[in-house]
Design a protein around this nucleic acid. Structure first.
Lengths: 104, 104
DNA sequence: TGGGCACATCGGAAATTCCCGATATATCCA
DNA sequence: TGGATATATCGGGAATTTCCGATGTGCCCA
């Protein structure tokens, strides 16, 4: 895999206002989302429905955006029962922070 | 100014293969570009013409891309005589590296 | 087994980005 | 002054991204 392509994919994922916003919200899930009766958001992540309510776009768009962030490596996805929980992959952000010192 | 908008502008600037490549080249100008008889590339930067030759796109596209990178704050532009010299704004990259630890 | 719920994927219209050639602007030099 | 050179800007066709509604898939529970 060419790491240059990965970086490009990451920056494309980040070059959208709503997707940037989602990453912000997922930094502090319990501050930005109502409690989930199924699954603690701090542990398993936040389900698609709650994120959709928050940003106001259609269900299909939100699902797609979350997939884009996940494929870029910025989010983890956990499927549990009928829900998919998304949470930040903090290692990716740490790696990016370092990349800006050395690679980019 | 909303710093969130600035970040978005930066990521948009970075979400293009050629523009990422330009930033790479400008990390070590004298390694990637032939010598300029007018102006030392390490000091003043690299002129548009040399960058254009290197990436093979049209003159207008290259000029536009450099402007995008400059408006995002990633490059400095120095107009000297008939040439415009572009060089990296390393402070911006340092700031971005930090932003990935705290903001984003 | 069947219906409801959560999410993913598909097909497509509208908006944006990519990248070009043509043209404008600004500088240098004969 | 005029012509050559370096760069910027303009107008636009092609490609990509944005975002939607419709539909598909998988899980849960009566």
């Amino acid at each position: 895999m060419d790491p240059k392509l990965d970086q490009l994919e990451i920056f494309k994922a980040l070059s959208n206002k709503t997707r940037l916003q989602m990453l912000q919200w997922l930094k502090e899930p319990d501050k930005h989302f109502p409690a989930q009766e199924h699954g603690d958001c701090e542990k398993v992540g936040v389900c698609v429905g709650l994120i959709q309510q928050k940003c106001g776009l259609s269900q299909s768009t939100v699902s797609e955006y979350l997939t884009i962030l996940q494929k870029a490596g910025l989010l983890h996805a956990n499927r549990v029962g009928q829900w998919t929980y998304y949470k930040r992959n903090e290692e990716a952000f740490t790696a990016l922070s370092k990349a800006f010192k050395t690679d980019i």
